[in-house]
């Protein structure tokens, strides 16, 4: 019981500190903006560790963070192989293929207004469906290995990316199009110099959403069939063995991979769309 009391004390202390920082004079600085959420996260981990150890929570329900870290350190080779299989082979390849296909399709569709008017609603519709359900079908077509996972990722990222790109290409104002008209610009010139740059913020929105979808797609697709390697495989196998520390280890890897992937795209976005109000911090 003392551990519960202690945890509560720690939580309240950390929260009070955060309140002080958030409402203090330095609250606008970058340092404080990083400290507060970090403190929150660390406190969460600390309380988790204390409560699990203090209350002797069985491992099969919730392992303490320290055990998860240990498991990760002991199994680096396996974690790496799983990462390569799921992320590099499955998610990344599917992401590149799916996004490129979507962008090219959007360019084609853009030339024919009739097509874009028909495709946008249908694309929006399909993007809202549980595409993950196509995983068993794709495993049947492409086999157990990374190809079917990449295929699932392609299907998952295609429609959000298509919808965002088409929307971005339509984003120009009448005035900007009129200006091009007064220059007697050819459609290709108007496309390259106006519509494509103007579409970039939307396209990057789609690219960012797709990073998350890609990783989810690759992992969950492995629940439907996989060779004995891969993050999804390891998670479902470890769950079966009640080796929850390994499950959490894979989740940490997945979380790191997911945020790093998203972050990388966000950095590129900042470079390409430096001019957009959302990037200028206005």
């Amino acid at each position: 019981m003392s551990i519960v009391f202690f945890s509560i004390v720690v939580w309240i202390a950390a929260w009070t500190l955060n309140v002080k920082l958030a409402n203090g004079t330095a609250s606008g600085t970058r340092l404080v903006k990083v400290i507060v959420p970090t403190l929150f996260g660390l406190t969460l981990l600390l309380v988790w560790e204390m409560l699990v150890r203090g209350l002797n929570v069985p491992l099969v329900i919730l392992p303490p963070p320290s055990l998860v870290v240990d498991t990760m350190a002991d199994n680096l080779a396996i974690l790496w192989k799983d990462f390569v299989q799921t992320f590099l082979k499955g998610a990344l390849r599917g992401y590149l293929i799916g996004c490129s296909a979507a962008i090219l399709t959007a360019f084609l569709v853009d030339r024919f207004d009739f097509l874009s008017r028909g495709l946008l609603p249908v694309g929006n519709f399909i993007a809202a469906l549980p595409i993950i359900g196509t995983a068993p079908i794709l495993v049947m077509w492409f086999g157990f290995d990374w190809q079917s996972k990449a295929a699932v990722v392609v299907v998952m990222v295609f429609f959000p990316m298509l919808v965002n790109t088409v929307a971005g290409l339509r984003e120009t104002t009448a005035m900007q199009r009129d200006l091009m008209h007064t220059y007697a610009a050819r459609p290709a010139q108007s496309f390259l110099k106006l519509r494509l740059p103007a579409a970039m913020p939307f396209m990057f929105n789609g690219l960012k959403i797709s990073t998350t979808l890609a990783l989810i797609g690759a992992i969950v697709a492995e629940f439907f069939g996989s060779p004995v390697v891969g993050m999804g495989f390891r998670i479902s196998a470890s769950v079966g063995q009640l080796a929850l520390d390994m499950v959490w280890a894979e989740i940490v890897v997945a979380a790191l991979a997911g945020s790093a992937f998203y972050g990388a795209v966000a950095i590129i976005e900042k470079g390409v769309t430096f001019w957009h109000p959302s990037q200028r911090g206005s």
Partner: peptide, 28 residues
């Protein structure tokens, strides 16, 4: 290309510098 048109709003492309914006019709 007999005329230049100036709209109510400047309508400059934010991804081009001022020089780049003026170059736009020249490139086309």
């Amino acid at each position: 290309r007999a005329y230049g048109y100036v709209f109510q709003a400047a309508g400059l492309y934010p991804w081009r510098s001022i020089g780049g914006n003026i170059r736009l019709p020249l490139e086309i």
